[in-house]
Design a protein around this nucleic acid. Structure first.
Length: 421
RNA sequence: GGAGAGGUGGCAGAGUGGUCGAAUGCACUGGUCUUGAAAACCAGCGUACAGCAAUGUACCGGGGGUUCGAAUCCCUCCCUCUCCGCCA
């Protein structure tokens, strides 16, 4: 959520920059400022009215104490008009605040200067490609055939017990998944992140704090009986650790493995085949809380960190800077990592590393004390390090040989085997 | 699920209708003292909004009500803890 004070101060730039996200903010911003003007006037009035009623109440108190009942009763009569007036002003205040918030939650975060305009993922900017795209035999298979052939994942069994998009991992297939989770966590810990194992259900407030609500309401599974939401990413519980917190030391670095649950309403076709898009998948997330002056430096470090992991896994990948149109609601700048999956001959997104600047912090009331003793909003960042299914897919697709699937060296310590036959 | 207790400032913890935005202690910040530190002593120390400021207003889990006046009384919702039941 943008800060109303910032909107007032930088109205023009904000409107311009939001156009990069293809978001026409002008009328919303005008109306929010208009309402904020009204709010200020209203507050001035209500402060005055409340101030006089407070004064009278105090006087009455004193008169009662000194036993001057008649005078007190006389004063009481004066209050009814004030009371009505203040009720009215407070109602107006509440309404205005509500309306202002309703508008503010509709306005996405302002993109960073480096973000280019663009309409869709097709216009994302490829920054660099890494590694060699493997030359596979002509009969190379996509992962959904390999998982079947080597008995690694039973999609049909998942269909039976839950539904499409809920795979059952099996034998070495399950072991590989577990190995990846541990491996990612170890890499993150090595880089200074503290490991957490958070709840998989969050309350409404947490959903709001990271902007999953109301923006992505339909994408989350909702346990209505208890009004809890299944997390779409560990970002939601972990970032909400810091809701209403005044931070003392930067940076704060957290990592967490969690299953992630997404309804993915409206997805279909080839895009969702096999592991490409699931309703439940595993992900290891990294989250940082940073000083505003350092957040972009930190974003670069996080990108570098994810790069290192992919290098280690010997996967060919590319780094993209998302264009305005593909940037998420809350993000100011996002880098995506895509891994080349040779069996499908396509790039698959495996990580998204973002700086939200103070957009989440403003909702979370996540602050620190500046050197002048003023509270200021922190910056929050997060990234996947990494999302499992597509990494899994590309590992088995890219490493398929006539003998079987070769496990990348970095993982063998974790799998306990070096080939799947 | 049943019964009970409770939610107050960074923490602990007082406060049951009127100078209470809130005692006190701890923590923290500055100062005095000291070669330095500790101790002791003195002072400061919540957040938000409006205002150039003085200052005003709001906030004692959330919402609503009673009252001239609510942290304090009433209603309602949420949460936490204890005991019992069930249970990995």
């Amino acid at each position: 959520m943008l800060n109303i004070a910032d909107i007032r101060k930088n109205k023009k730039t904000i409107i311009e920059k939001l156009l990069v996200k293809n978001f026409k903010a002008e009328s919303l911003i005008n109306s929010v400022i208009e309402k904020d003007d009204l709010r200020k006037i209203n507050q001035k009035n209500s402060d005055q009215v409340l101030s006089s009623s407070n004064k009278i109440a105090k006087e009455i108190g004193l008169l009662f104490k000194s036993g001057e009942l008649e005078k007190a009763n006389l004063l009481k009569k004066d209050t009814s008009a004030l009371k009505e007036k203040s009720k009215e002003l407070i109602t107006t205040k509440n309404n205005l605040e509500k309306e202002i918030k309703e508008i503010l939650v509709q306005i996405p975060n302002v993109p960073h200067d480096s973000v280019k305009k663009g309409n869709s993922e097709a216009e994302n900017e490829i920054i660099k490609e890494f590694g060699e795209i493997p030359e596979l035999a002509a009969n190379a298979k996509p992962h959904w055939e390999l998982t079947d052939q080597f008995d690694l994942i039973d999609f049909k069994l998942g269909n039976k017990i839950t539904g499409a998009g809920f795979p059952v991992y099996k034998g070495k297939g399950a072991r590989l998944q577990r190995a990846l989770i541990t491996y990612f966590l170890d890499k993150n810990i090595e880089d200074g992140y503290t490991e957490y194992l958070p709840p998989l259900l969050v309350n409404e407030e947490s959903g709001f704090g990271t902007c999953a609500l109301p923006d992505k309401e339909g994408q989350m599974y909702h346990a209505t009986e208890d009004n809890l939401f299944l997390i779409p990413t560990a970002e939601v519980p972990v970032t909400n650790f810091f809701r209403d917190v005044i931070v003392k030391d930067f940076p704060i670095k957290c990592t967490a493995y969690t299953p992630c649950f997404r309804r993915e309403a409206g997805s279909y076709g080839k895009e969702v085949r096999g592991l490409n898009r699931l309703h439940q998948f595993d992900k290891v997330e990294i989250v940082q809380v940073e000083h505003p002056d350092k957040s972009y430096q930190t974003l670069d470090k996080m990108v570098k960190h994810v790069s290192n992991i992919l290098d280690d896994l010997e996967l060919p990948y590319r780094l993209l800077r998302l264009c305005g149109g593909d940037l998420s609601f809350a993000s100011a700048l996002t880098y995506d990592f895509e891994v080349y999956s040779a069996g499908q001959k396509r790039w698959l997104e495996v990580s998204s590393v973002s700086n939200f600047e103070s957009f989440q912090s403003n909702r979370l009331k996540l602050r620190f004390k500046s050197s002048e003793g003023k509270s200021q909003l922190c910056h929050t960042l997060n990234g996947s390090a990494l999302a499992l299914p597509r990494i899994y897919a590309s590992i088995i697709e890219n490493n398929q040989t006539e003998k079987g699937i070769i496990i990348p060296k970095a993982l063998r310590k974790y799998t306990g085997f070096d080939i799947i036959e």
